[in-house]
Amino acid sequence: MLSLKGGVGKTTIAATLGGTFATIRGDRVVAVDASPDSGTLSQKVPLETPATVRHLLRDIDGFERYSDVRGYTSQGPSRLEVLASENDPTMSEAFSGDDYDRTVAVLERFYSLVVTDCGPGLLHSAMASVLRQADTLIVVSSGSVDGARSASATLDWLDAHGHEDRVRRSVCVINGVRPSTGKVDMQKVVDHFSRRCRAVCVVPFDPHLEEGAEIDLDRLKPKTREALVGLAAVVADGFPAGDAVERFG
């Protein structure tokens, strides 16, 4: 999950899309918060453990079975598990590319699908590893003009840094973080990103998601649930055939 701009609902899309996959699929799905600062992904599910990715990396040599890793994640009602980022600023260290590689190497042993919620921007330390490993990039934009410009700038940056093929295979999500006022021609926004990305999906505004708290998919409006299932189908279309573990961010 990528975005140059904060406030576009990137973490919410990571949690709801991951939760949708976890609900539909019979295997394990985990979302990892790769934000270099205190990310908020863990706030989208009931907190079951104070452990973070730092604790997982500290104990990484001791994992032999799924139950060993499960003690470091929190699980929501959708069955999505979340691995939190470090939330203590006094203890936080930069989450490096090597840290991300080591984390994913463990997760892919026990989970069939790994969702990565990146921090805002594209220059933080783990991004090179995320771009190298992700099967599908999902660029999130709000339905506003500045949100669309920021998402387009994200694609421009990827193009300029040798990721043209990833841009063509990416999925753009237009996220309704606020109720529609009708002032933005949404079809023009969709058409713009359709020319650059493999697919564009619109997730409508939903009062439950606006709360910014723990997410219960059963509380979403039917149109929101339908949009998320459609997004999951589009993302799954891009998974490489025969890959045992799908990773997207």
Rank of each mutant, 00 (worst) to 15 (best):
S3D: 01
S3L: 09
L4V: 11
G6M: 06
G9R: 00
G9H: 12
K10E: 01
T12Y: 00
A14L: 00
T16M: 08
G18V: 01
R25I: 09
D27E: 13
D27M: 07
R28H: 14
R28C: 02
R28N: 11
V30R: 01
D33G: 05
D33F: 04
P36N: 12
G39I: 11
G39E: 08
L41G: 03
V45G: 05
P46L: 09
L47M: 13
E48Y: 04
E48K: 12
P50M: 03
A51G: 01
T52S: 14
H55F: 04
R58M: 10
R58H: 15
D59I: 13
D61M: 10
E64D: 13
R65K: 13
R70F: 14
G71Y: 04
S78Y: 00
E81S: 12
V82S: 02
S85Q: 09
E86L: 10
P89E: 07
S92Y: 02
S96C: 03
S96G: 06
G97F: 06
G97K: 06
Y100C: 13
D101C: 08
T103F: 07
V104S: 03
L107M: 04
E108T: 10
F110N: 02
C118V: 12
A126F: 02
A126S: 15
M127D: 01
V130C: 01
L131H: 00
L131E: 04
A134E: 00
D135L: 12
I138G: 00
V139L: 10
G143T: 13
S144T: 12
V145I: 15
G147T: 14
A148T: 11
A151V: 09
A153E: 14
A153F: 08
T154C: 15
T154L: 08
W157L: 07
L158A: 11
A160D: 08
G162Y: 01
H163L: 13
R168V: 05
R168Q: 04
S170E: 02
G176L: 04
P179C: 11
S180N: 14
K183P: 05
V184Y: 03
V190I: 15
F193Y: 11
C197G: 06
V200W: 00
F205W: 13
P207F: 05
P207W: 04
H208Q: 05
E210D: 14
E211M: 13
D216Y: 10
E226W: 06
A227V: 01
L228Y: 05
L228F: 06
A232W: 00
V235Y: 04
A241T: 11
G242D: 03
G242T: 06
R247L: 14
